[in-house]
């Protein structure tokens, strides 16, 4: 706990210092950090929801890929962003249900089930991909009246597209739901010790299905955000490993939504700062090295948290009722 507060304090002081030196650049860097970090945070929520109920989901990458694909091409074909969003979320939920079918019903090894989703997503999207499609626009930025004119916090937090707000709000909703509602208590019990939940009359199978499907829908939202709000296009391998990075952030955030959000923003900040340094040519290192940054950071994060965090105890184990 103390190290976390220390991290907060250092971050705060650092931001304050840079803000005093150059308010414009600092604001833009932190704003970018949120833009970079949010899709990772949302993807990490997929992992948290699944693993909290005991299902390891390494198919987040596939969910992001396939849902952004479907979202983009639906929006492109129909010219309607909302339709694109809905189809992306639905596709995400479907990928979640597929994982449930493989891992919960068929009790397949969950790592393999996730890998299947990733391979399917890569294969299908590459096969159906056609070049030259565009969408009319991305989701426009919505400035929250009043709040957006606060210095620093306004541009950083309140000048984003609708999916950004939705994502941030949903992360807090998930956090509250996980720790304050019966659903959350039951979900965590299922992830820690499923037979206790079962003997207390909670259906392990139903809850796992439900949560993995909702998590998939969440991943669909993240996919929609990436293509329909952030980038505005789609290309092969579009998700670029974000689903795997998200797993690292989930672990770093100790399977806690707020923790993972913090980790994601830290991650986004590192990337935003590097970008800024490159653009202003303060440092000149080959671009290949800066492109490596997310992956190097992921490895570092995992190395730091390894052994110090405790995963949900029943993670990865199919539930066998009669052995209870």
């Amino acid at each position: 706990m103390r190290s976390r507060w220390l991290m907060f304090a250092i971050t705060f002081i650092a931001i304050l210092y840079f803000y005093m030196r150059d308010s414009l650049v600092t604001t833009s860097v932190i704003g970018t950090a949120i833009t970079f970090g949010l899709p990772l945070a949302m993807a990490a929520m997929v992992g948290i929801m699944c693993e909290r109920t005991g299902i390891v989901n390494i198919g987040i990458e596939g969910t992001l890929l396939v849902s952004s694909f479907v979202g983009f091409f639906t929006a492109s074909a129909s010219g309607n962003l909302i339709l694109g969003l809905i189809s992306a979320v639905a596709m995400g939920a479907i990928s979640g249900l597929l994982l449930s079918l493989l891992a919960v019903t068929w009790k397949m090894d969950q790592i393999i089930a996730g890998t299947i989703i990733n391979i399917l997503a890569t294969g299908l999207t590459s096969f159906f991909y056609k070049q030259g499609h565009t969408i009319p626009s991305t989701f426009p930025e919505v400035d929250i009246p009043g709040l957006s004119s606060i210095p620093f916090f306004g541009p950083v937090l309140f000048m984003h597209g609708p999916l950004t707000y939705a994502g941030i709000i949903l992360i807090f909703v998930l956090w509250v739901a996980l720790y304050k509602t019966p659903w959350g208590l039951r979900s965590r019990a299922v992830g820690e010790h499923p037979s206790s939940a079962d003997t207390a009359g909670v259906s392990v199978i139903k809850l796992r299905y439900l949560n993995v499907a909702i998590a998939g829908a969440f991943g669909g939202l993240a996919g929609a955000y990436l293509t329909l709000e952030l980038v505005g296009s789609w290309d092969r391998g579009f998700s670029a490993g974000k689903g795997f990075t998200a797993l690292a952030l989930m672990i770093f955030g100790r399977w806690n939504p707020i923790g993972a959000l913090g980790a994601a923003i830290f991650f986004g900040t590192a990337q935003a700062v590097t970008n800024q340094l490159m653009i202003t040519q303060v440092v000149t290192i080959p671009q290949q090295f800066t492109n490596m940054l997310p992956y190097v950071l992921t490895i570092l994060i995992l190395a730091i948290s390894a052994g110090k965090v405790r995963a949900p105890a029943a993670e990865g184990q199919p539930y066998e009722k009669e052995q209870a």
């Binding site: 208590l185 820690e192 010790h193 206790s196 207390a200 009359g201 105890a313 209870a324």
Partner: peptide
């Protein structure tokens, strides 16, 4: 009362008792 305790180790006593009918 089960032979192998049906308790979630990381949760509190209260949470364990109310689980399923909160």
């Amino acid at each position: 009362v089960h032979q192998h305790f049906q308790l979630v180790p990381v949760m509190s006593v209260t949470e364990n008792i109310i689980l399923g009918d909160e």
